[in-house]
Amino acid sequence: MTDDGERLLLIVEDDEAFARTLKRSFERRDYRVVAVASHEELVELLASHNPAFAVVDLKLGRASGLTCVQTLHAHDPEMQIVVLTGFASIATAVEAVKLGASHYLAKPSNTDDIEAAFGRTEGDTEVPVDGRQTSIKTLEWEHIHQTLVDTDFNISEAARRLGMHRRTLARKLEKRQVR
């Protein structure tokens, strides 16, 4: 395994344009950056690289980025892992942290947000606990999203568990992209 130093950043993102933009932005900040688009590519890369930082998209095509988080944490428990998602849910945030993520950020997040998350290694007891009320739509979406995670993003099985028709679930997912 090569010694990649403390500034090697791994991006796990299947959106090529977003990965390229993020890569260039971090390279301007003197990170060495490598990018992969799948769990399979990640496993190959870890055979020869030892990144100190990782940015993982929660949704990689039809796969879950949570598998990548678990693999990265098993590879190096000290790695700073930030999970990005287009729709943040409590369920996936909890799972990401349980699996080894340092932080969980909702898209759009920029390089400043991600780099700040790498620097935050302790919890913040000053975070307000009296946030906004959760709407019924948000609760429904979090339940759907957790069911998708539980079924490894299998739409048919998730629809069965949710007691709805597969096409109904597909329409709901089209309205709120899981990224």
Rank of each mutant, 00 (worst) to 15 (best):
D30A: 15
V33G: 00
V34M: 05
V34G: 00
S38W: 03
H39N: 14
E40R: 10
L45K: 01
L45A: 12
L45S: 04
L46Q: 03
A47W: 07
A47V: 13
A47F: 09
S48Y: 13
S48L: 09
P51E: 08
P51H: 08
A52H: 07
F53H: 10
A54G: 03
A54M: 02
A54T: 02
V55C: 03
V55L: 04
V56M: 00
D57W: 02
K59D: 06
L60N: 05
G61Q: 05
G61S: 07
G61Y: 04
R62T: 10
R62K: 12
R62Q: 11
G65M: 01
L66N: 05
L66G: 08
T67S: 12
T67E: 13
T67M: 06
C68T: 04
V69F: 01
Q70E: 15
L72M: 02
H75M: 01
H75L: 00
D76P: 02
P77S: 12
M79Q: 14
M79W: 05
I81P: 00
T85Q: 03
T85D: 06
G86T: 14
G86W: 13
F87T: 13
A88W: 03
S89R: 11
I90S: 13
I90H: 12
A91W: 07
T92W: 03
T92P: 06
V94A: 08
E95F: 08
E95T: 13
A96T: 00
K98G: 08
K98H: 15
K98I: 10
K98A: 11
L99F: 03
S102K: 11
P108D: 08
P108H: 12
P108M: 09
P108F: 12
P108A: 09
N110S: 09
N110A: 04
D112Y: 11
A116G: 08
A116W: 06
A116R: 13
A117Y: 02
G119W: 03
G119P: 04
R120D: 10
R120T: 14
T121C: 09
T121I: 13
E122I: 04
G123D: 14
E126R: 10
E126A: 12
V127I: 15
V127R: 12
V127W: 08
P128G: 07
V129N: 13
G131T: 14
G131A: 15
Q133S: 15
S135N: 11
I136G: 04
I136L: 11
L139S: 15
E140I: 07
W141I: 15
W141N: 12
E142N: 15
I144E: 05
H145L: 10
H145M: 10
H145Q: 10
T147V: 14
D150M: 07
T151A: 09
D152L: 07
D152Y: 06
F153W: 07
I155Y: 03
S156F: 05
S156H: 07
R160Q: 05
R160L: 04
R161S: 06
L162R: 04
G163F: 01
